[in-house]
Computed example of a mutant assay.
Amino acid sequence: MNEIVDMIRQWPKLEPFKWDFICKGSKSILGYEPTRQALNKKLAVKRAYAVKKEQLRFEANKLSRVARPRSTLEAMERLVKLQEENDQLKGELNKMAEIANRFIYNAKIKGLTPEQLMRPMPQKKKP
C-alpha cells in the first residue's frame, strides 16, 4: 500500500485527481485494478487521498485570489516587473550575505565565539 500512497502524494498536477484514475494507476502496482471501495478501506490510502485533495483545494483557492490579467501584454508587463523586483531582491540578499560574512570574519579575528554572536539583544527597559 505504501507504493499507492506514494503515487497519490506525487500525483501530477495536470492529471484529474479522482478515485477512478487512482484505481487505474494502482493496477501497475498491484497487478489488478482495485475498486474505489477496496482502496478506501485502507487507512493510509484514505488519509493520503484526503490530504492530497485538501492540498489541491488550497492551491486552487490560492490561485483564484490572484488577479487575472486582462491581456497577454498586461501579463507580460507583470512578469517583467516581478522579474525586476526578484533581481533587485537577489542583489540585496547577496549584499547582506557579504556583510554577514564580513561580520563573522571580523568577529573570529576578535576571538568572539558563535555563542557570543548569537546571544539575544538586550530588552529595552520600560519606563
Results as ranks from 00 to 15, higher is better:
1 M>C: 07
3 E>L: 09
3 E>D: 14
6 D>P: 00
7 M>P: 03
10 Q>K: 06
12 P>L: 01
14 L>Y: 05
16 P>I: 00
17 F>M: 03
17 F>K: 04
18 K>Y: 07
20 D>Y: 04
25 G>K: 11
29 I>G: 05
29 I>H: 09
30 L>F: 10
30 L>I: 03
30 L>M: 12
31 G>E: 10
33 E>C: 08
33 E>T: 06
34 P>M: 03
35 T>V: 06
37 Q>N: 13
37 Q>W: 02
39 L>P: 11
40 N>K: 15
41 K>Y: 04
43 L>A: 15
46 K>L: 04
47 R>V: 15
49 Y>T: 03
50 A>M: 12
50 A>R: 13
55 Q>K: 08
56 L>C: 10
57 R>N: 12
58 F>E: 13
58 F>C: 04
59 E>F: 07
61 N>Q: 14
62 K>T: 13
62 K>P: 00
63 L>K: 15
64 S>G: 03
64 S>C: 06
66 V>A: 12
68 R>A: 13
69 P>G: 05
69 P>T: 08
71 S>G: 09
72 T>M: 11
72 T>W: 06
73 L>C: 05
74 E>V: 02
74 E>W: 02
75 A>H: 04
75 A>Y: 07
75 A>W: 01
75 A>E: 08
77 E>I: 00
80 V>S: 09
80 V>I: 13
83 Q>A: 08
84 E>V: 07
84 E>N: 05
84 E>W: 01
84 E>F: 01
86 N>Q: 12
88 Q>E: 14
92 E>W: 05
97 A>G: 10
101 N>Q: 13
102 R>W: 07
102 R>V: 09
103 F>G: 01
106 N>S: 09
107 A>T: 03
107 A>D: 14
109 I>F: 11
112 L>V: 05
113 T>I: 07
113 T>D: 15
118 M>S: 15
118 M>V: 08
120 P>Y: 08
121 M>R: 11
126 K>V: 15
127 P>C: 05
